[in-house]
Design a protein around this nucleic acid. Structure first.
Lengths: 343, 343
DNA sequence: CTGTTAGCGCCTTCAT
DNA sequence: ATGAAGGCGCTAACAG
């Protein structure tokens, strides 16, 4: 007597008085099964509280019904979390499960690329915002596993990304439109030679906007932070400047917020004394009133999931390279150039 | 000729000149296989870039090597993310995969509990910080799937949790120690009758601390917020108070931060004019200098994963109910009672 | 220590 | 429209 909770198709078949083949067909909604039989099978399955075993089904079909997401940062990170949320939602609609692979440090990273635990265990892999070495890319490619790159473009690999440079260019342009001319850029400098990070692309947007506005190259000022919470350091270098910019474009909201807090401590307030614009539209950006270049993470995740789903199904995506648009959001930290005078 | 990336054990066996059973044993490091043979098999597996199919292995062993986490909130949430990070780390050590189930709204929730997609597809399920109805608990229990509850205690179900009331009691006590007597409590009131949220337990800690300090019941003041970002509302009610408290204990950092920002806008600054303590130790608490009752989410996740792993292995945990300690962290928002006088 | 033999639970021809 | 049979890739006795 099988216990309810471990009922197998054989049990359902017995109870419904049909063969397991019929149960299988009925449960997948095959039109080859008569309505009456389907009803009987469904009832029996409910009765036994039967659920299909994905392992068995996957083994037989050669498709696991599971897609992996490789995340290069802690999951608690705003970006990782948002991407996972969006991917999850889309996969759930397709009744596909999500399994996570994380490589938040060198050790995990090496483990992933030597063991390749995703191999043969997911139908497709979404590689989320992750700067890969050539060797790593090659290793992934050798997997013969459908891949989707998120915020990284690689020849021949379907991808979805934002235009970092273009987004930042618009952000800086909005500062220029406010009348600012002396605009500084604050970057997170992870100092990992050989990689191109989004920060590198974003600073490019700053350069382009300034060049287009006719600001001479030598008037650009770039402040570096070793990590996204190094606002104090940045605030210090800012104060040390002989002729401080009236506006700052920062390569991430995280850093921008940190900088704002520290500037505030020193009596420099936005937008009264300075304009600050971030990048990402981090959850706390809205809450703190930070103006920013919004990156539509939800869209990134959804599009990536769509591509992965198609590839997993063996279909060939018509638009394998998706570019999603950023959007400048003005909140409370940007405004006109402060008029000099007593504070 | 099998392609590298789809090599199966049979291919490895052929190349190594042994049987598949030996390959299976060798790869799992069975001591029954001679060192020499193991070496040969390993070499062949590498050569073919072979990886085990968890689906097949799981099917044969009756264990999937996969544990699920059911999360009741968006994944981008500080709590979800942190728990997932910790669980992931622990599972990875045991070479167990993590699959996510999310029920962030009524629709997802109903879908989960009617379809029970975790059934027969994970070896154990961690139910993370999630207020379940009796019916839902019963449905889960009927699953005959090992369960671990995180931050929710249920008779007969292994669990790991913090002492919400005790933690808050200590937090409020630290305010009392600073000399405060008029201490208000700010709570997030989700208004879902029938559920007991952590907020309800935390306010209890406030009551206990105040009672122990001999503050009469009628001097307690409780401010309610409909959501964790409703600081403005709270700040308004605070200002409307005839005899405003000199300190505020808030049931979450999220809300505390929101309140702080709004108070600040109105010229009320911590700790100069008011002391504020939160609860959680959210990532932004440290960054914003918020004093708080730290909840060790990492430990919660790790312990939950340990329990799940044991249960999945069929072992009986010796300590099925783990209580992890909170810790009061003083940063910049708490201090002595402000001395009245000109500001 | 290694090979042989049965499945694990489902899906998919191929018959009927 | 349904059933029978074989196999997906691996593991677990059971032999030897």
């Amino acid at each position: 007597m099988p216990t309810d909770s471990h009922a197998s198709m054989a049990d359902v078949a017995r109870l419904a008085g049909v063969s397991v083949a019929t149960v299988s067909r009925a449960l997948r909604g095959s039109p080859l099964v008569s309505a009456e039989t389907t009803a009987r099978v469904t009832a029996a399955a409910d009765e036994l509280s039967f659920a299909i075993s994905r392992a068995a089904s996957g083994l037989a079909r050669g498709r696991l019904g599971r897609i992996g997401v490789l995340v290069g940062a802690p999951l608690r990170t705003w970006f990782s979390g948002s991407v996972l949320d969006a991917v999850y939602a889309r996969l759930a609609q397709a009744d596909v499960e999500l399994t996570i692979f994380r490589t938040q440090d060198a050790a995990e990273r090496e483990a992933f690329f030597t063991r390749l635990p995703a191999r043969r265990n997911v139908d497709a892999l979404i590689v989320a915002s992750f700067e890969l070495t050539g060797a790593e890319r090659a290793r992934l490619a050798s997997l013969d596993l459908p891949l989707v790159y998120l915020n990284q473009r690689v020849r021949g690999v379907p991808s979805v990304a934002i235009d970092d440079a273009g987004g930042m260019q618009e952000g800086v342009q909005s500062l220029l439109d406010h009348g600012h001319r002396r605009i500084g850029f604050v970057r997170t400098d992870l100092r990992q030679p050989g990689f191109v990070f989004s920060s590198d692309r974003r600073i490019e947007g700053y350069r382009r906007a300034m060049a287009a506005a006719g600001v001479p190259e030598q008037d650009l000022v770039v402040l570096s932070a070793p990590s996204p919470d190094a606002g104090e350091l940045v605030a210090r270098s800012y104060r040390a400047l002989a002729d401080p910019p009236t506006a700052l474009a920062v390569d991430s909201d995280d850093l921008a917020l940190s900088v704002l807090v520290e500037l505030d401590q020193g009596g420099v307030r936005a937008p009264r004394d300075i304009s600050v614009i971030g990048f990402d539209d981090h959850a706390y950006a809205a809450r703190m009133g930070l103006s920013t270049v919004a990156q539509p993470v939800d869209d990134l995740g959804t599009e990536a999931a769509d591509l992965a789903l198609m590839l997993a199904a063996g279909e060939v995506p018509t638009h394998p390279d998706v570019l999603v648009a950023t959007r400048v959001v003005h909140r409370l930290t940007t405004g006109p150039v402060p008029t000099p005078g007593p504070r």
